[in-house]
Design a protein around this nucleic acid. Structure first.
Length: 264
DNA sequence: ATGCCACAGAAACTGTGA
């Protein structure tokens, strides 16, 4: 089973791009972030026509996440628990039946957190990460195949940026941000890409500005975390970098994993 | 120190992103 995370940066602006990629890449499941659309305007017909079930947690203008799946949804949950006052659409979870039992997949869009001296921004990011950690700890107790896929807005290590020195003052590379990501991983997750390669220069985002793509000035901020039950079925990971060179690209590219699971 | 570029929504600009 191929599971992919992709920050699409506006699903309506990029629906042609998305359907072309779905046909080419043929994923079983896709976690989208930054759909920038309310649920009513999400272009579901084009995606359903390719054989996908669609569940969204959208919002006007910003944020918004979705899961596209060839497997039917047994259950859908919207929103990360832990703060009833948080009205950002950054989280959706789906549960599926496989030959190995339940598969639980979350599509998450972690807050950017900049600027770091703005309490409303950076502390919101850290609070969101703390909520994610609590939620993940609870879910791990289920001992299911669990995949936390999304735009984490976290550069985990210096090797995950072409120019790490440029990111020292940025919320994506702050010590507290990196520590929160380590704390989450250390609950018992395997980070998919880093478990198959320790190479520097693996990036998932290149800014639109200042020719970042042409200069390969990238960062690795889109991640998939696997529970032990998912990691035991995990065989490969790949970054679909060529998509960044397409016409009207997202600034992020798809990150894919393969799990040896079959539909129930 | 800021803009570079891009999207959405309201409206020819602002907010947000990373």
């Amino acid at each position: 089973m191929k599971i992919v995370t992709w920050n699409i940066n506006g699903v309506r602006a990029r629906i042609g791009n998305l359907t072309h990629w779905l046909t080419e890449s043929a994923p079983d499941m896709v976690c989208l972030q930054e759909i920038k659309s309310v649920d009513e305007l999400f272009p579901r017909a084009e995606i359903e026509a390719l054989g996908y079930n669609v569940e969204t947690n959208g919002q006007k203008s910003f944020n918004g996440v979705a899961i596209l799946s060839k497997l039917p949804f047994d259950e859908v949950n919207r929103g990360l628990p832990g703060d009833d006052a948080d009205d950002h659409a950054r989280f959706i979870e789906g549960v599926f039946s496989t030959d190995q039992g339940a598969l639980r997949v979350a599509s998450l869009y972690l807050p950017n957190g900049n600027p770091i001296d703005d309490e409303r921004k950076f502390s919101y990011k850290l609070a969101w990460m703390a909520r994610l950690e609590r939620w993940a700890e609870e879910r791990l107790r289920l001992e299911e195949a669990l995949v936390l896929a999304g735009d984490y807005n976290v550069i985990p290590e210096p090797a995950d940026a072409r120019f790490p020195e440029n990111w020292l003052g940025d919320a994506l590379f702050q010590p507290r941000t990196r520590q929160a990501f380590r704390r989450l991983k250390n609950l018992g997750f395997t980070e998919a890409v880093r478990s198959v390669t320790d190479s520097a220069g693996v990036y998932t985002f290149w800014d639109y500005q200042a020719g970042a793509w042409q200069k390969n000035n990238g960062i690795r901020i889109d991640h998939l975390l696997l529970s032990p039950e998912a990691a035991n079925r995990f065989s490969s990971a790949s970054v679909e970098k060529h998509v960044r060179a397409w016409e009207k690209p997202s600034d992020h590219v798809p990150v894919a994993i393969e799990l040896s699971l079959r539909p129930a």
